[in-house]
């Protein structure tokens, strides 16, 4: 564990907590894409399949449970909780996110480190996570203005993988044989997709107004 990865995990944790705070306290998911949340639930479900077979550390297992629990409960809230579901912008959240799943699965079947069931699904989760934010970014452009909490959520979610990139650079220089092109490229693509959001975020958010 290094400071970059810890910062990345804490940023990721903060993003799900901000979203849960918004949904649970003010019972609103305005501006939040259910489709992105569904994709993230699939990402964690396919990435953490080894949660019961391979134990890394208490921290690792605890965080996996937090991300699994939070992503599925956010989907449940947005789909089935009456008050929250009412604030879901169904008409605007129309990105065909299932069209992202199949290409990621095919790509994982073609490009992976090991051709095993767990490894292919794990690689699939990396590819899917890289594009999972697309429905949310499209919704963001349609709804123009979003509230601060949603803006913070997207910022933290984009930032965590950026910190992971620093972690990979650090581990590359400090650990022999630490080379994982698939993880690195997927993480880079994921972070680059946030580029224009970060641009507007810093322009607007730091200026004290909402994100437009």
């Amino acid at each position: 564990m290094n400071i970059f990865r810890l910062a990345g995990d804490m940023t990721h944790l903060a993003s799900v907590l901000v979203l849960l705070l918004k949904i649970h306290t003010i019972k609103s998911c305005a501006g939040v894409s259910l489709r992105t949340q569904e994709l993230y639930a699939i990402v964690f479900a396919t990435r953490y399949l080894d949660i019961f077979t391979s134990f890394v550390s208490v921290y690792n297992t605890f965080m996996k449970l937090v991300f699994l629990g939070s992503s599925f409960s956010i989907v449940w809230y947005m789909r089935y909780h009456k008050a929250v579901h009412r604030t879901y912008d169904r008409e605007q959240d129309t990105f065909r996110h299932w069209f992202l799943v199949l290409p990621c699965l095919v790509l994982a079947l073609l490009i992976h480190e090991k051709f095993t069931f767990l490894e292919v699904l794990w690689t699939f989760s990396l590819y899917l996570e890289a594009v999972a934010i697309l429905p949310q970014l499209v919704l963001l452009q349609r709804t123009r203005n979003i509230d601060n909490l949603t803006g913070q959520y997207i910022f933290l979610l984009g930032g965590y993988r950026g910190l992971y990139i620093l972690n990979w650079i650090y581990r590359y220089f400090t650990e022999p044989h630490f080379v994982h092109w698939i993880t690195w490229i997927a993480g880079l693509v994921q972070t680059l997709l946030y580029a224009d959001f970060f641009y507007y975020y810093f322009l607007r958010f730091i200026g004290g107004r909402g994100v437009e």
Partner: peptide, 10 residues
């Protein structure tokens, strides 16, 4: 092995 190393990340 090196693959286990990868799996120590979230």
């Amino acid at each position: 092995s090196k693959n286990d190393v990868t799996k120590d990340e979230l």
